[in-house]
Design a protein around this nucleic acid. Structure first.
Lengths: 227, 227
DNA sequence: GGGATCGTTGACGGTGTCTTGACGACGTCG
DNA sequence: CGACGTCGTCAAGACACCGTCAACGATCCC
């Protein structure tokens, strides 16, 4: 789900955006001043930021600069000012788009889609798309697994499981979490599936399937992908 | 040096842009209709396109779609129409920005800088307009397929499918993704179409249609274009 | 108006995958 | 020491999916 951070100090604008965005399946985070916008962006990891320039505490370009210091998340600026100089300074500070109030909701949504589409195709996502271990490599973007140079074929379920573990590499992933993500919310208790498919993955990927080095079991808790 | 392709049929606009852009160190290419814009984009490999929607020959969204078929170069649309629906359709067709005439030169230049800055940070991943395999060649810009020197005729649907796969060559493309892109969002579950059209493509392009080497099936997941 | 092309839909067989059950090994706790 | 729960392994049937062929309308072009 796409996460949108809406930064505006006018409640009615925030409300209108929240309603429209939520109705279209976006997840909406909000902040009402510059300082909380920066922390919310760091905390909520939004996919796109809608930023009003007329904030009470910070200048708009400072907020943009504060974001651009560590993230390349798309920023769409809202502003009541139609001055060309305002637009130029905001865009040059690092904003991706500039919409003047009053704005049409259709247009804003279209510009938001465009911004999200752009950033989706560029692999700037913080995580690396290819995970490598001593015995095999997982390419998350291409959905391919290689072992000793040769490609290993995985079934959809096997891949879903491996992908979930690889995206959380190093961390423990609970069985319930795995089951709900790969099989669906109704399968939260079918822990037998995990045993069957972990065995299959180990047989395909581990040098010694009975003594796994990368696909580890944490008894009673879940599984962990270790590099 | 940054190369800008300016597409507009009004000479005075082209002249004004050429002067301003050249003075700021851009290299300027021009086209005055949709058809020549497409060839100029394929030929001149611009870093950004400024596109007027009111062209004499083609509809603006068709030009955008024609470009988006093979390149992700940023497109900034110029238009005299302020209709919200025009903006939405242009942005959803793949445009990056939409500026209404009359526009301030400062603002356009700032939006242009923003568009170039964005695309500069994303690695222009091996996006070649012509994809070559051992048995056939796909020219994404010209929308043509050759096999053994001769041109192969593809229907629009066949082409849409092949284009989508070729643009994601090496990567697995989910069936839902293919269906939504080629047939439309309402066809996300009509996976039967994929089987029929993949069979047709293989019959036309693969040396052994029953043992495909380039248009591969990943059961339960999707299809993959392998070089 | 006639013919060809294209998109859509149905039926069919074959193959691979998912699900399910049974069984033994291991560790823990009463 | 024995009961219990968890885990790993194996096997077999049910099922979904894929590829293929063919027929039907709709549309476009001559």
């Amino acid at each position: 789900m796409t996460r949108v951070l809406v930064v505006d100090d006018e409640p009615q604008i925030v409300r209108a955006l929240r309603i429209n965005l939520t109705a279209r399946g976006y997840q909406v985070l909000t902040a009402h001043d510059g300082a909380s916008a920066l922390t919310a962006a760091a905390d909520g990891k939004p996919d796109v930021v809608v930023l009003d320039l007329g904030l009470p505490d910070l200048d708009g370009t400072d907020v943009i600069a504060g974001l651009r210091g560590w993230t390349s998340v798309p920023i769409i600026v809202l502003s009541a000012r139609t001055d060309s100089s305002d637009k130029v300074s905001a865009l040059d500070a690092g904003a991706d788009d500039y919409v003047t109030k009053p704005f049409g909701m259709d247009e804003l949504l279209a510009r938001l889609r465009a911004a999200v589409r752009r950033s989706a195709t560029s692999p700037t996502a913080g995580e690396d798309a290819v995970v490598e271990t001593a015995s095999f490599t997982v390419d998350l973007a291409a959905k391919k697994v290689h072992r000793d140079g040769a490609e290993v074929h995985l079934t959809p379920t096997e891949w879903g499981l491996l992908e979930m573990l690889a995206r959380n590499r190093g961390r423990l992933v609970g069985q319930k979490q795995l089951l709900q993500e790969v099989w669906g919310p109704a399968y939260a208790k079918e822990s037998h599936y995990l045993r069957v498919y972990l065995a299959q993955l180990r047989r395909k990927l581990e040098p010694e399937p009975s003594h796994p080095r990368h696909l580890l079991t944490e008894p009673g808790m879940g599984y962990r992908f270790e590099l």
